[in-house]
């Protein structure tokens, strides 16, 4: 088995997509890790659905007693820390920010993503039920939608598919797919393979991907820093 990127490495690669002053909403899972890899000196403004902008890092286990506050949490219910310049607002304003196109980048997890950039991530696999939460609004309306995912399921099945087999979160919404073996841009309803994990070939990535990949003329190895 070839070595794949860790969840942290996927997050590190996605952090390179951020820019100074970007307003960013991170989903649950690998996306949450992205905030740990923002370059020194860059200001990223985090948005959470439950009505806060510009808050600080998640409270660690050691800090819990000192800093945990049930009235300062993110959308995953984790305690976060205050930062100067932070602000609070109600849910309709929070989603005016999302639905009005004011969120620059959202990073979301995924069950399946199609070659057209359709995203499916709200149904629990195997349970027949699911939670939509704020993910659908983000997928439809954020300016840039990045998905963070392992390239295949635990059983080795492709997560990048010709057409999603589970209920959609949003059609044709994904801009960039960052996996543990490749970086793929969704462009004009095609998948453009732009970067490969160290040691991986185009053929090996294609073998784990259901739809045909178009290879970028600028194809290179993933750089994390």
């Amino acid at each position: 088995m070839k070595e794949r990127l860790s969840r942290e490495a996927i997050a590190m690669r996605i952090a390179k997509e951020l820019f100074d002053g970007a307003v960013v909403n991170l989903g649950i899972g690998i996306p949450t890790l992205v905030s740990s890899f923002v370059p020194e000196g860059m200001t990223v403004i985090y948005h959470t659905e439950n009505g806060a902008l510009g808050f600080g890092p998640v409270v660690t286990a050691e800090e819990m007693k000192e800093k945990a506050d049930i009235d300062l949490v993110n959308a995953s219910g984790q305690y976060v820390t205050p930062l100067p310049g932070m602000c609070f607002f109600h849910h309709a304003d929070s989603f005016a920010m999302i639905r009005g196109g004011h969120i620059d980048i959202t990073v979301l997890g995924v069950l399946e993503v199609s070659e057209k950039g359709d995203l499916a991530n709200w149904m629990f696999p195997g349970r027949g039920v699911g939670n939509i939460g704020g993910g659908m609004d983000l997928a439809f309306n954020a300016r840039k939608v990045i998905v963070a995912t392992e390239h295949t399921t635990k059983d080795g099945k492709p997560k990048i598919v010709k057409a999603c087999s589970v209920p959609l979160t949003a059609p044709e919404c994904v801009d960039l797919i960052v996996t543990d073996v490749a970086v793929i841009e969704v462009k004009d309803q095609r998948l453009l393979l732009k970067e490969l994990a160290p040691g991986w070939s185009v053929a090996e990535v294609q073998a784990l991907t259901e739809p045909a990949l178009t290879v970028s003329p600028d194809l290179k190895e993933i750089e994390l820093l």
Binding site: E49, H91, A92, S94, F95, I98, R99, G128, V129, I132, G133, G134, M136, D137, N141
Partner: peptide, 19 residues
């Protein structure tokens, strides 16, 4: 799941805006 309670599921922003 047993049908005892009816569910209307909505995107969170649609729920907020409908309210």
């Amino acid at each position: 799941l047993s049908g005892e309670v009816e569910l209307e599921i909505l995107p969170q922003g649609t729920l907020a805006e409908r309210i």
